[in-house]
Write a protein that binds this DNA or RNA. Structure first.
Lengths: 347, 347
DNA sequence: GGCTTGCATGTTTACGTCAACATGCTAGTC
DNA sequence: GACTAGCATGTTGACGTAAACATGCAAGCC
């Protein structure tokens, strides 16, 4: 007697198809299709029969078949490094909401780390995804240098104004934000402003850095050496300890709120008062910045609008195809709170 | 003479298909398929010709056709309210990374707001997505009460231990976390511990609340009235102002770090010292908590592990089909920092 | 009554891929 | 030399849907 080992469940049955619904309702698949798509030229009685059959069988349309037929997926790919920075997270949130409102879904394609290799591998991955378009939330220069080319016909929007001119771009006004921050500190009477920048390869980091430098130069002020962080509060803290030891530093512009938080923490630890001894400005306006101690003066970015614009432009490209490399810069504004004040020896 | 208005580009040509590649390489589509799938039984010379043709034409496999053929999408749907809470964001991050490692992509299905109606509408949406399984990052009770049923055959994992027993569950150990926090404050010598809870409908919020209460009762301590926040730092700040006016409050357990931050900010404002006058414990261990002022004692959650476990269990269900409602509780640990200390009048 | 018109419904076909089966060539065996 | 085994490659068909085209019936018109 032979023991028959049951074959490892060869994949549970597929769901019911239009054919099943059609059979049960006694109509053709085409009529089912018409009901499923809400076309009007169906007898109410027939429609009801079909709807009931769908209900009973638990029919749900097969998206793959639909996509195959129509050539459209109604799905957008998003490539990004990490959700762990506030800006990325909030931008993704904005994009997701805007996409959902337009009836598109979102496929996340994570990039392990900000290296050329990881980006190329993500692109390879992306190319095989069922997407109608792509939003790149990664450092543009890595896009430009990637060996893997994005498929030519595929609509792309880049959220980083450092991108090659041939893609449409959406970004916050980094330059204006850094200018506002630096100017604000100068206006308070500080001789100059020190800067804690983001990591080297980052485009927003360099934009903020350049704009800070330009603003100082425009006012004929000394441009102090740069502090280089990596966006994290921990890096801000490490640099903050150094800042605390240098009494000549009275004004610091941090390239994001998390680093500003770390700096403030180091200053507290070292017994330096904010803003009496040192003034701090951040960048992002995180939901928590208002509850930092002291509440942080910072540059507010409208991430929801960035997400919304990105989707708008991408859908325009997808649905009407004229690939015009638009450049959409979203305005920022300075939010004044308690972390900034006049310098220690001001009149 | 008739002006012919060109019809609004009826959708640019589709990308090249296997047939195009086959034609160019002078082989059959099946051979192209074999090359595309890395099968070995192809003459090296033929393979090269096919690969070159793919290269030239910029061929990328059509996922919809593949999915249609195989009945699998290699895609997982994630339903969640908002990315704006630290826990959600980090869990999503963990899930995304784990899914990518397993060769699956992620489709986000946002839920506008935590109402029954929005959840039902998201489910309707979800049902039409091309997904092989679903991870629910929403309050379980809204799932249970939804009028829209999830399709019966579809594998589901819930990240919320309040879920119905018929779905597998992954969650942080909320109960143990709240116990650790409360116990720590009692051990320091505080008579009792006050609690700032999360919003009413939230399951993690009630778990933490109940465990705090149980721990106090187990030690025969008074259970003070509850403060009710909404997870945001702003709500913490508002409640913190009240706490600051009540000198009998010496120890506070906040249900998350953001609210703890808000509370501390209000205490600073009111001139109350932390931890000399009031001790605070949070929950989450945000990346920034170490840089709060003072650095926050809090309960660390391993969100990456939650994401990883969720994917593991879901893939097991998808690929091997035995739907066993597992319950996977991820351990937490207390991180001691500077926001807690002995009570004001301790010996 | 013979005709068109309009509308509900049915039939056919193609979308791109890949499993299953078919073919045909080469090399090895007696 | 006849036969077989093994392997590269080709052909067919099905997955579920929807556009395009076809059918067939009833109402309206002269």
């Amino acid at each position: 007697m032979t023991e028959t080992i049951p074959p490892r469940a060869p994949r549970p049955a597929r769901g019911p198809s239009m054919a099943d619904v059609a059979e049960r309702a006694g109509v053709s698949t085409q009529t089912v299709s018409r009901v499923a798509n809400g076309l009007t030229n169906v007898e109410p009685a027939t429609r009801d029969r079909v709807l009931q059959a769908m209900q009973v069988l638990g029919y749900r349309p097969n998206k793959a078949a639909r996509a195959l037929r129509s050539g459209r997926f109604r799905n957008i790919g998003i490539t990004m490094f990490t959700l762990s920075t506030y800006g990325n997270m909030r931008t993704l949130d904005g994009i997701t909401v805007a996409a959902a409102a337009a009836g598109y879904s979102i496929t996340l394609v994570p990039v392990r780390d900000p290296t050329q290799e990881a980006v190329s591998s993500a692109f390879t991955n992306l190319v095989e995804q069922a997407v109608d378009g792509i939003i790149l939330l990664i450092e543009a220069h890595l896009v430009d240098n990637s060996e893997v080319e994005l498929p030519p016909g595929l609509p792309v929007v880049v959220v980083d104004s450092g991108a090659r001119a041939d893609y449409p771009v959406v970004d916050n006004d980094q330059t204006e934000g850094a200018r506002l921050a630096t100017q604000h500190l100068l206006d308070l009477g500080h001789d100059t402003v020190w800067h804690v920048a983001g990591p080297e390869g980052s485009y927003p980091a360099s934009r903020r850095h350049e704009s800070w430098r330009d603003t100082l130069q425009a006012h004929g002020r000394a441009v102090p050496p740069l502090f280089r962080g990596d966006w994290t509060a921990a890096s801000g803290h490490a640099l903050g300890l150094e800042i605390a030891h240098r009494p000549e530093i009275t004004a610091v512009f941090a390239a994001n709120d998390a680093m500003a938080l770390g700096i403030m923490s180091a200053l507290h630890e070292s017994g330096r008062r904010i803003p009496q001894d040192v003034s701090i400005v951040g960048f992002d306006d995180m939901a928590e910045s208002d509850s930092f101690w002291p509440p942080l003066t910072t540059v507010h970015q409208d991430f929801d609008l960035v997400g919304q614009r990105s989707i708008e432009i991408l859908l325009e490209e997808i649905e009407h195809a004229p690939i015009v490399p638009v450049r959409s810069i979203v305005p920022v504004r300075l939010v004044l709170r308690a972390s900034t004040g006049t310098p220690p020896h001001a009149p």
